[in-house]
Design a protein around this nucleic acid. Structure first.
Lengths: 138, 138
DNA sequence: GCAAAGTCTACTAATCCCATAGACTTTAAA
DNA sequence: TTTAAAGTCTATGGGATTAGTAGACTTTGC
């Protein structure tokens, strides 16, 4: 299961992407509209800003807006930033690889082989779906 | 990411399935061979016994053994028992459904639509792979 | 009867998740 | 130039979950 953080982040992004134009939207507007705790959303948007998906404007009339276009935001990228690995097991992660401390030999681990399949399948979806795709489905 | 519980459980099951015959194997043997904390493994095997995958024998010469044949143990079933939902979001789970408290309308939730796809894909693998399949891949 | 095995309950340390509080900075507009 | 509106950042905390430990108990084979 993914954390609320990731779910909220994706919802906030689609909220921004759905808008005409690209003027800043206040955190409070997004939070209220999507039923998200405002303070929590703050920290989520902050990490999406630091990773180049969003930009913000302070002061009156400020808020958040998309820095990349919706077609150029892959869900897999957002997922990795907010949630972490897409893989179900660290020894199978492409971006967050870690050796399993209980496995003497990765190549002979049957669980690992299965988890590679699951990862590849999830990746096929998440890496090929963009924010724009999500909106278009409506 | 899945928990160690699930990973250990799958490893223990494959360990048992790989053996010729079906005589009881002591927890300590599995734990040592798979590098799993013995006490932790105890509780895992216990829940696999209570759900009908394993049977145990107490006393001297006792241990755990498979109750179902390896061809009849679907990974998805084991996953659901040890890990819980396969879905990434509760509102999309087939076996552990829960409404998301922030969503006013499930049908119009774009994140949900995506998560259904991911679930279907994961399920296609996990529900069609048996313990025997894992062993055969070696 | 004894020793070897699983069973069960309870506990704990560590970690993560979700959220809140509050002080701070930047900016637009009056 | 003051003021209020916004984001920024740090700290904190409760609760849940995870991973593991301890130890007393029960069952069984020899």
């Amino acid at each position: 299961m993914i954390s609320r953080k990731t779910k909220y982040g994706l919802k906030a992004l689609t909220f921004l992407a759905r808008r005409q134009g690209n003027d800043p939207v206040q955190i409070s507007v997004i939070a209220e509209s999507e039923n998200i705790s405002q303070k929590f959303l703050e920290s989520i948007l902050l990490s999406l800003r630091k990773t180049g998906f969003l930009q913000s404007k302070k002061g009156k009339g400020g808020g958040y807006y998309l820095l990349k276009s919706a077609e150029n935001i892959k869900i897999a990228e957002v997922y990795r930033i907010l949630e972490g690995p897409i893989a179900l097991v660290p020894c199978v992660s492409l971006n967050f690889y870690e050796k399993c401390d209980d496995c003497p030999d990765e190549d002979s681990c049957t669980v690992r082989k299965l988890m590679i399949k699951v990862r590849d399948n999830a990746l096929a979806i998440l890496a090929n779906t963009t924010l724009q795709d999500l909106i278009d489905e409506e």
